[in-house]
Design a protein around this nucleic acid. Structure first.
Lengths: 330, 330
DNA sequence: TTGTAAGCGTTATCAG
DNA sequence: CTGATAACGCTTACAA
C-alpha cells in the first residue's frame, strides 16, 4: 500500500503552486479555467482526495455537527437520516456517536467535543437537565425529542399529539380509556398531560397505568387488564412498541381488536403500518424535527444567536388512523 | 466562547516545553514524576483536551477504524456496540458512518476513507462482490455477516445454524417444514443451504418459499399457507422479523402455535424473547463476531497480514429453544 | 492570475 | 530528563 497522495503531489504533477491547487479543490475564485482544468486532471490522475483533518486544523471552523443517538432505535435512525440530510444542505458535516450498552451518553458526548465539533445534537438525551444546561453553556447544544429548560430543544408537540389521539378515541364513543404511561422517557410527561387534559375536557375517568415503554411492559399491562373485572374500551399506549405488546396479548387471548377493545400507539414505527397490524397511531415528523434542529444549530454556530436565549421548537404530530381502533359496539 | 486551550497553553502555564507536555499527555516515558504532576495540574486547570486531528496529522498512523452500519437495525446495533468495545481494548478509535435512505453505502464508505481510517469494517454490506474486492485492494476491509470471495469476512456459520434449527424441528417429529428464504440478504444463501442439507439427510420434502425478510413478507407467506389445502407442520423463517409476521397471522387466524404449527426464526432479536412471543430461534454471537472482525482488522493494519490472503472467519450460532416450537400432535 | 511563506496543534528527532 | 526545531497536509494572507 502506497502513501496517499497529498495536495503537494497534485501541485507538482500539475506544475503549479500548492495554493492554486487548494483554490481549485475548494472551488473558490482565484484561478483561470485553464489552470483549474489542469489541476483537476492531475488530481484525478493520482486519485487525490483532500485530508479533511488538515483542512479543519488550518481553518478556524470545523463545520462539524456532533450527533448522539441510540443505535437500534428506529425512530432515532429516522432522525439521524434527517440530520445527515439537513446538515449536508447547510454545508456541514456530521460526526456520529452512538450510545450503546457499553458506551454511555457522557462518553458519547465527550468524544464529540474532543473531535472539535462546533455544535452537538443529542437525540433523546437522558442526562439530567442540570448536566445538559452545563454542557450547553460550553458548546452549542440542541436536544431532540425532549424539552429541557434553558437548552435549545426541538420536539414534537406531545401534548397535542396525545390530545389528538384521545379526541379520535372519544369521537369513536369510548369513555373508559386506559393510558399506559412512559415514565421518565422523553415526551412522556407531555403525552400524559395531553391524555389528562383530553380526559378532563370530555369528562372521562382518568385511568393511567405505568409501564408503557416496551413490548414486554405492554404485554404485562394487557395481562393485568384481562385479569381485572372489566376490560377498558380503549388502550392508548405511550408508544407503538408498547401498543404492539398489548395487541399481541389481546389477540392471543381471543379479545378481538378493535371490536371489543381499541388500541392505539404513538410514533408510527415501521411495524405499525403492516397489513396485519394496522395500528392507529400518532406520527412524529422526523424529517421536520431533524431539519429544525440543524437549522437552529447552524444559527447558533454561525453566531446569529448569541447566548442564553434557549428556544423550544415544537412540531405538530399527525394522527394516523388505521384498523386497530373503531367505534364502541358495547 | 473562548479559544480552546492548546498544548502550548499548558506548556506555558506549567513552565515547561511543549514536547514535555506531549510526553505527559500521552503517558509515555521521558518525564520526571514531578514534571508529570505539574503538567497534569496545569492541563486540568485550564481544561485542556488534546486535539485528535492534530495528533493524527502528525503521527503516521491514525488508529482509526471506519464502521458502516444500517441505523435502526437492532442486530447491527449489537455489532456496533461490540466493535466499539473491541476497538477500544485494542487501542483504536471507531468512526461511524450510517447507511440510511438518503445516504447510500458507497457514500458511507467514501467518507470513511476520506477521513483517513486505516481500515474499514462493513456490517451487512450489500455491495457487489466485485466492488468489495476492489475496495479491499485499496484499504484493509472486513465484511461482517456476509461472505465475499477474496475479502476478509466474519460471519455466523449460517449453514450450521439453519441445520441446527432443522434438527430441532425434525427431532420434534416434523416432516413438512416450510422454509421462508431471505433472497439476496447476507447469509441467506447459506441458511437455505443448511435447510436443504438437513432436509435431504432426513429425507424430507423441500418446501422453500420466497419472502423471508420482513414482517410483511412473513405475514403474506402465512396468509398464502392458510389459503392452501394443508398447513405445514412447521415454518422456519430466514429471520425473526419474518417469523413474527408468520406468528401474528397464524394467531389472528386462530391457528394455535405451537400446537398446530411450529414456528422458528433466526437472529434472536430482542422481540423473540418476550414473554408472550417466546420464539424459538438461532442466536448469533454479536460480541464474538465484532471482536473477531476487529482482531482481524488490527492484524491487517498492524501489518501482520500482508496481502491477498483473505480469511473467512465463522462463528457457530446457538439454538435457542422457546415456546413457539413443539412436538407434532397430528 | 499566480507564487511565497507562515501557521493550525500536535509529535518526532535530536541535541544538551 | 528537558528543550529547540522540523514536520504532518492544508489554507490564507500577502506579494509578485
Amino acid at each position: 500500500m502506497q502513501r496517499r497522495p497529498t495536495l503537494a503531489d497534485v501541485a507538482e504533477r500539475a506544475g503549479v503552486s500548492r495554493a492554486l491547487v487548494s483554490i481549485v479543490m475548494r472551488d473558490v475564485a482565484g484561478a483561470s479555467d485553464q489552470t483549474r482544468e489542469r489541476v483537476r486532471r492531475a488530481a484525478d490522475a493520482i486519485g487525490y482526495r483532500p485530508d479533511p483533518r488538515a483542512r479543519r486544523l488550518r481553518q478556524h471552523r470545523t463545520r462539524l455537527i456532533g450527533l448522539t443517538f441510540e443505535a437500534g432505535q428506529e425512530f432515532h435512525a429516522d432522525l439521524v437520516d434527517g440530520v445527515y440530510l439537513a446538515a449536508d444542505t447547510q454545508g456541514y458535516d456530521v460526526v456520529l456517536s452512538a450510545v450503546t450498552p457499553h458506551r454511555d451518553e457522557p462518553r458519547a458526548l465527550r468524544t464529540l467535543i474532543d473531535d472539535r465539533c462546533e455544535g452537538l445534537v443529542a437525540i433523546g438525551s437522558r442526562l439530567p437537565a442540570r448536566e445538559l444546561t452545563e454542557l450547553a453553556s460550553r458548546v452549542p447544544l440542541v436536544v431532540l425529542t425532549r424539552r429541557v429548560r434553558g437548552v435549545d430543544a426541538v420536539r414534537s408537540d406531545d401534548v397535542a399529539g396525545a390530545m389528538a389521539g384521545m379526541e379520535h378515541l372519544v369521537g369513536l364513543g369510548h369513555r373508559r380509556i386506559v393510558y399506559l404511561d412512559g415514565g421518565r422517557a422523553p415526551g412522556a410527561a407531555e403525552r400524559l398531560r395531553g391524555y389528562r387534559k383530553a380526559a378532563k375536557s370530555a369528562q372521562l375517568p382518568e385511568m393511567v397505568c405505568p409501564g408503557g415503554l416496551t413490548e414486554r411492559e405492554g404485554a404485562a399491562a394487557a395481562m393485568a387488564m384481562l385479569e381485572s373485572r372489566q376490560l377498558p374500551e380503549a388502550v392508548f399506549a405511550f408508544n407503538d412498541r408498547c401498543a404492539l405488546g398489548v395487541l399481541d396479548v389481546f389477540i392471543r387471548s381471543g379479545v378481538p381488536v378493535p371490536q371489543q377493545v381499541s388500541v392505539m400507539g404513538f410514533d408510527d414505527s415501521p411495524l405499525a403500518g403492516l397489513a396485519h397490524i394496522q395500528l392507529t397511531t400518532v406520527r412524529q415528523d422526523s424529517a421536520g424535527l431533524a431539519s429544525a434542529a440543524v437549522e437552529r444549530m447552524v444559527a447558533r454556530m454561525d453566531g446569529v444567536v448569541t447566548g442564553g436565549s434557549a428556544v423550544d421548537i415544537v412540531r405538530r404530530p399527525t394522527l394516523v388512523v388505521r384498523g386497530s381502533t373503531a367505534a364502541s359496539t358495547r
